[in-house]
Amino acid sequence: MLLIRCPYCEEERPELEFRNAGEAHIARSADIAGESDDDFEKFFFIRSNPKGIIYERWRHMHGCARFFNAVRDTVSDKFLMTYKAGEPKPAKLPGASK
C-alpha cells in the first residue's frame, strides 16, 4: 500500500484513503459543443499510458475529498510529487529516475 501526500491536508496518508481519477492536465474545452470529432476524440478517449513519468489526478476520497494532481513513476510506482488542482505541470521533478 502506497503512501500519498495530499497537498491540501499536507500529510502523507495511506493509499486506501485515495482514489485514482485518471490522467491530469486534460482540459475540457470552453466551447466543447463546437469541437471537431478529432479534437473530442483526443480529449475524451486518448490517454498517454507512459512507461515512466505520468501526471495523474487523485482524489482524497476518505479525507478532505479534494481532487489534486500527482506525478508518479509507473516503473518504480513512486510518487515524485503532488500538487493542487489547477496548478500547472511542475517544471522540475524531485528525484526523477530518468
Binding site: 481519477a21 475540457r28 489526478r57 482524489r59 476520497m61 475529498a65 479534494r66 481532487f67 488542482a85 489547477g86
Partner: peptide, 13 residues
Amino acid sequence: MNHMEDYLQTEFP
C-alpha cells in the same frame, strides 16, 4: 456525488 465534485473542483471551480 463524485461526478459532481469532480466537475465542480476541477472544470468549473
